[in-house]
Amino acid sequence: MENISIRPAHPGELAAVAGLRWEWLVENGSQDLGEPEDFVWHFVAWAGENARTHRCTVAVRGDRVIGMAWLAVVQRVPTPRSPRRASGDLQCVYVVPEARDGGLGGRLVRAVLDGARELGLERVTVHSSSRAIPAYARSGFAESPRLLQVRLAPA
């Protein structure tokens, strides 16, 4: 793939990452989002406040961020055999439309999963659109009969 690097986001790139999140929301029909500049400011502040638990991986072509994927790390209750346990949740995988269908999303997911392995996470989950399920399955994600959820509020 044409000179694209996949790596952890630098702090100076978080405004561009916020822009990707904004694009994703607009692309998926979100309305009444407010002003993009306000969102970028809040997003960058949130990313700084949550840097210990939320890790952003980016795809960069030249100096432009064209894709992102987040890993949310959650500490789990210890057991006698595993005093330090954690799992992860893959979130906000997005690639700009003009860079899709070339495997870039899969590269982002694999990079996040490699990072999760390095952290020793027990599992990584993802909440997917039905359209993206095959892509996640290609990266090793599978349905689990024991992973349940309760929807508490609209997303």
Rank of each mutant, 00 (worst) to 15 (best):
A45Q: 14
E98W: 00
E143K: 10
E27Y: 15
E98V: 06
Y94M: 04
A72Y: 10
S30Q: 11
R117S: 05
W46H: 15
V65K: 00
V74L: 13
L119Q: 13
M68Y: 01
I66D: 00
G120N: 02
V17I: 03
A111M: 01
A135V: 09
V126R: 07
R84I: 13
V58S: 05
S129H: 05
G106S: 06
L14M: 14
D63S: 15
R61Y: 10
G120C: 00
E35H: 08
A18Q: 01
S129T: 11
G48V: 11
V26I: 13
E37Y: 03
F141Q: 11
P145A: 15
A135F: 09
T57Y: 00
R146V: 14
G105N: 02
E37F: 02
R146I: 10
G102L: 11
R76I: 04
G29Q: 09
P11M: 06
V44H: 10
G140L: 10
P36G: 12
P36T: 06
M68T: 02
V40Y: 02
Y136M: 08
A51P: 09
S87G: 11
A69G: 05
D32F: 05
V74A: 12
S144T: 12
G29I: 08
A18I: 00
R76Q: 14
R85T: 00
S129L: 07
E143H: 11
S129V: 03
G106R: 05
L71Q: 01
A132K: 01
L25D: 06
V40D: 04
V95T: 05
R76L: 14
L14W: 00
A111L: 02
D114A: 14
C92N: 15
L113A: 04
G19T: 03
S87K: 05
Q91I: 07
H127L: 10
A111D: 02
D38C: 11
L119A: 11
N28K: 07
R123L: 10
W22A: 00
N28L: 07
D63C: 09
E23W: 02
E35W: 06
W24F: 13
E13A: 04
S144M: 10
S128I: 06
A47E: 12
A135Q: 09
L20Q: 05
R100L: 02
T125V: 10
V40H: 02
C92Q: 15
G115F: 03
P145D: 15
P97F: 02
A72C: 11
R52V: 13
R21W: 04
T125Q: 12
L33Y: 09
G34E: 03
R52W: 10
T125C: 07
V44D: 01
R52Q: 13
A142G: 08
G29V: 05
L14F: 03
D38F: 10
S30Y: 09
L33M: 07
H127K: 09
L71F: 12
G103Q: 02
S82D: 10
Q91W: 08
A59Y: 03
R107A: 08
G19I: 04
T79K: 15
R110I: 06
V73I: 13
E118K: 08
G34H: 01
A116F: 05
P134Q: 06
A137N: 07
A135H: 06
E23F: 01
V58M: 08
W46C: 12
P97C: 03
R138M: 08
P134S: 05
S129A: 07
E35Q: 08
P97K: 07
T53N: 11
G62T: 04
E37M: 09
L104R: 04
E49K: 07
W46S: 13
G102I: 10
W41E: 15
F39G: 02
T53H: 14
